[in-house]
Simulated scan of single mutants.
Amino acid sequence: MLIRLCAAAVLLSVSVASQASTGEHFAFGHPGDAAKATRTVEVTMGDMYFEPKSLNVKKGETVRFVLVNKGQLLHEFNLGDAAMHAAHQQEMLKMAASGMLTPTGMKHDMAGMDHGMAHGDGAMKHDDPNSMLVEPGKTAELTWTFADATGLEFACNIPGHYQAGMVGKVAISQ
């Protein structure tokens, strides 16, 4: 019985670590080098909207996203499909419930707090390479090299924001 539990724990940790490791290649691409970006796209984050509402990219293209939060609330730019966003929303809900996320920011002094989120080391943090939190009035950057994928979205997974319409489609062409 103990061997089965250990084997299950190892498989789970390998699976989860592969989903959250920095530098990992996702089905839809991987973190890119800003110096190699073929273009820059400014994304405005307002309270419950993104502008632009959709993006068109090419397979293999490296895009530098400049994320400008013009709203009064903390927002997130996260690349993924609907299933990834649903899972991440549950993580973000735990972060908000713990007090780590506030409506306008993130309490970094709580970053080592264990809350059951499986991020390799079990610590609560927001460090996925396909995601960026941006506080009100701030600007951040995320660079991504796209692979061929369908159903890709960019979204804000702060509790309630995705449901309020803070999500857009990414079309990837050949």
Score class of each variant (00 low, 15 high):
Leu73Gln: 15
His161Cys: 14
Met95His: 08
Thr143Trp: 04
Asn78Trp: 04
Ala82Met: 10
Gln163Ile: 04
Met92Asn: 10
Thr40Ile: 14
Ser15Trp: 13
Ala87Pro: 01
Val66Lys: 15
Lys59Ile: 05
Leu55Cys: 08
Met84Lys: 14
Gly160Arg: 09
Glu91Tyr: 11
Lys94Ile: 14
Asn56Lys: 13
Asp114His: 13
Asp109Asn: 12
His88Phe: 12
Gly151Ser: 07
Ala9Gln: 02
Val63Trp: 02
Thr143Gly: 05
Ala96Lys: 14
Leu73Val: 03
Gly112Asp: 15
Gly120Trp: 05
Gly105Ile: 08
Val170Tyr: 02
Leu55Phe: 02
Ala17Trp: 09
Arg4His: 07
Val57Met: 06
Asn130Ile: 04
Met48Phe: 15
Phe28Trp: 14
His119Trp: 09
Asn130Met: 09
Gly60Tyr: 07
Ala8Thr: 08
Ala37His: 04
Met92Phe: 15
Gly165Glu: 03
Thr150Ser: 13
Met124Glu: 03
Lys58Ile: 00
Thr143Ser: 10
Thr139Gly: 05
Gly160Glu: 11
Ala20Val: 15
Gln90Glu: 15
Gln72His: 13
Ser13Cys: 13
His161Leu: 00
Ala82Glu: 14
Val57Cys: 05
Met100Val: 13
Asp148Gly: 10
Ser18Cys: 09
Pro31Leu: 11
Leu11Trp: 07
Thr62Phe: 04
Lys125Pro: 00
Val10Tyr: 01
Leu74Ser: 06
Val134Gly: 04
Val167Thr: 12
His30Ile: 03
Asn157Ala: 09
Glu61Ile: 10
His25Glu: 14
Thr22Ile: 11
Asp47Gln: 09
Gly112Trp: 05
His108Ile: 13
Val170Trp: 02
Met110Gly: 01
Gly60Thr: 09
Gly116Thr: 09
Phe65Asp: 05
Cys6Glu: 07
Val43Tyr: 07
Met110Asn: 02
Gly112Pro: 01
Gly112Ala: 08
His161Gly: 00
Phe77Gly: 03
Met117Asp: 07
Ser131His: 04
Met166Trp: 02
Lys70Asp: 08
Gln72Asn: 12
Lys169Pro: 00
Gly112Val: 04
Leu101Arg: 03
Thr22Asp: 08
Met117Phe: 04
Lys94Gln: 11
Ala155Lys: 02
Met1Leu: 13
Thr62Trp: 00
Asn69Gln: 08
Leu74Glu: 06
Val14Leu: 15
Pro129Tyr: 07
Gly23Arg: 05
Arg39Gln: 11
Asp121Pro: 01
Asn78Glu: 14
Val14Asn: 03
Asn69Phe: 09
Lys107Pro: 01
Arg64Gln: 12
Pro136Phe: 12
Ala111Ile: 12
Lys53Gln: 14
Ile172Phe: 03
Ala35Pro: 01
Val14Gly: 07
Pro52His: 12
Lys107Trp: 00
Ala82Asp: 13
Ile172Trp: 00
Asp81Thr: 13
